[in-house]
Write a protein that binds this DNA or RNA. Structure first.
Ligand SMILES: [Mn+2]
Ligand SMILES: [Mn+2]
Ligand SMILES: [Mn+2]
Ligand SMILES: [Mn+2]
Lengths: 218, 218
DNA sequence: ACAAATATTTAGATTTGTCTAAAATATAAT
DNA sequence: ATTATATTTTAGACAAATCTAAATATTTGT
């Protein structure tokens, strides 16, 4: 498979939300930053190769084989992201573009050894699960901090309130996107939370918890 | 620069033996595993872009800019080779193909951080020098073990005598290609050498030394 | 149900990198 | 100095991936 074919497969996978839904030509074009006519051409070729199911005017979905290809790419992408953050001190938001390139390197041994070198991680720096070699993985969901049960472990991936005061508060309390957060305890009385973040314990109000998104994998 | 253009530049660099000699169309074609007519096409394009000097029927050489491009590629290739051997437990002879792909990843930060992660290595697993960020590096030369002065440090890169008995001897004494060898002392009487290899001291005869190639950078 | 709007495909062109076969140039041999 | 051989370039073609413009199909609104 060429680099371009691989990127199409990945886009079709992500748009199909993992459950292999049929996706439209326009959706793929938007995501691939290309024209719908180019998508039609490529999708025909992928169909010839048995990677996708394609019905003109009706949309495209991955075959079983295509799904395997997609999961292998997602695995590689996320492993490289972990590498960049853990070993090369990249930050959370710098890794995607480079991983987008690295995911296309062809070498099974490289992936296996990288996985080992990283200590067999199960989630990437964005809190997304890393598929195993045979394509199994937990689904990730995004919830606000106040919605999850005590004991939940996740990665801070966004804010609902993006006002300056709130962001300032996060900064002052040393909470940043990409941080791992563990919910230690919840006060029933006011809904405030005891959490652990980057090794430090912290007590945050319900209002704060409501505005912080956590990505978790059950 | 595209992947293909970069590979041409690297081949022209290597065939020009670093000192930027003019190389022939046929030589490039042989190295690139392609046809001379394809080389002519590509070399014209690279000439347009100011990467090479090209005179029809006379050959091609790198411009100053082209040389910079080549050295950056060589740097990346060799850093990745070190990574594969030192961090991912690849062996000496498995790294080239993968590095051939990795060298094309575009990210300055990636290269800088990789360099740091590896501890700023100066030679690759084959004993070849790694150009610095601004393109400086020591030239590597290959000599038999008996030709180098006491105190020389190098990498075992080949054998002159490849007979079964000799290879068996190397195996028994735990000497393999890719090993770092340090010449500790030389006996004037019989030319035998005291060497250090993988932490172990070893005493080898002049006959052995004559048949082992060392790659060294002065 | 039918016109209007939207989505998708087709036709034809372009760029990149490659190829084969033929022509042109350079090198070697007599 | 001519001829023969080897090298290099040109001309024309092709596959991959893309584009624009036009044609076709589907969906939406009334
Ligand atoms: Mn990609
Ligand atoms: Mn990610
Ligand atoms: Mn390469
Ligand atoms: Mn090397």
């Amino acid at each position: 498979m060429t680099l371009s074919e691989e990127d199409y497969v990945k886009v079709i996978y992500h748009l199909g939300k993992g459950d292999n839904a049929t996706v439209s030509t326009n959706a793929v074009a938007r995501q691939m930053q290309t024209k719908p006519s180019s998508v039609t051409d490529m999708v025909k070729k992928l169909s010839e190769k048995g990677v996708v199911n394609y019905r003109p005017y009706k949309g495209v979905s991955l075959t079983e084989y295509g799904k395997k290809v997609a999961l292998s790419l997602v695995r590689k992408h996320r492993l490289w992201e972990v590498f960049l953050v853990d070993k090369l001190d990249f930050s959370w938001d710098e890794v995607h573009e480079v991983a987008e390139q690295l995911e296309h390197i062809k070498s099974e041994k490289l992936v296996d050894q990288l996985d080992k070198h990283l200590g067999y991680p199960t989630i990437d720096p964005h809190g997304d699960p890393i598929p195993s070699k045979n394509g199994e993985f937990k689904r990730a969901i995004k919830k606000t901090l106040n919605e999850v049960p005590v004991g939940t472990n996740g990665i801070c991936v966004g804010v609902k309130d993006s006002s300056a005061p709130f962001l300032k508060f996060l900064d002052k309390n040393n909470i940043a996107l990409g941080d791992t957060i563990l919910v230690i305890d919840k006060e029933e009385f006011d809904g405030s939370l005891h959490i652990q973040i980057k090794g430090n314990d912290l007590h945050i109000s319900d209002q704060i918890a409501t505005n912080l998104y956590l990505k978790i994998t059950e």
